[in-house]
Amino acid sequence: MLLLAIDTSTSAIAVALHDGRRVLAERSTIDARHHTEHVAPSITAVLDDAGHSAADVTAVAVGVGPGPFTGLRVGMVTATVFGHARGIPVHGVCSLDALAHEAVATGAVQGEFVVATDARRKEVYWARYAAEAADGAPRARRLTDPAVDYPATVAEQLDGAPVVGRGAVLYPELLGPQAGPLDVSAAHLAAVALQALGEGAALPVEPLYLRRPDAAPSHPRKPVTQAAPHGRA
């Protein structure tokens, strides 16, 4: 068992290699605008660190968001293409679940809590969780479907629950104080995937966009010099 885990739904470009028992190697780069640059080099780096080659990987887990679309797609297409090229399964994990898992596993939260991440446009992606310990293994049970809302709307429903993720740092007066991790860790994403697979759950690889696309057509920029922008065909 060699699971390659990838998440690009938050500011971190996160990649990890998990052998089913422990994390063999991990890379995390905070660079919210340059997901495309970091993912592939991170994959080769974790493979090198662990002394493995791409051919040794037996499955891929990927964060399916919610998260800013452009970055999210970089991780998802990387995962699906890698799985296709190697002929191995690809599993989708709600990225908020990875943050929740880390918060519980590291003891940052107890009882009920909320995970809130940056959705841009003054909104957050969020879901409510309960910390549990089943058979001694810490886990986070999701109580609500992932949603996108204004921080004020989330604040009204907090009911004193601590907030995990970057959302609490971005909107401290509404969602603070912040608890647990800020961005997704691929190691914890791997743990969530392994837990779910162990329970026989199906993990579809469907992006959680939660918003319809903006329907404004692109207007190719008007070049004054030679660097011609490009639109259709």
Binding site: A54, R73, V77, T78, A85, H230
Partner: peptide, 20 residues
């Protein structure tokens, strides 16, 4: 050149193929 978000999907896919 091209649409930034569109280009990124292809570039990421190509890199993943090259690595895999």
């Amino acid at each position: 050149p091209g649409l930034a978000g569109a280009l990124m999907v292809g570039v990421a896919a190509a890199k993943s193929l090259a690595v895999a």
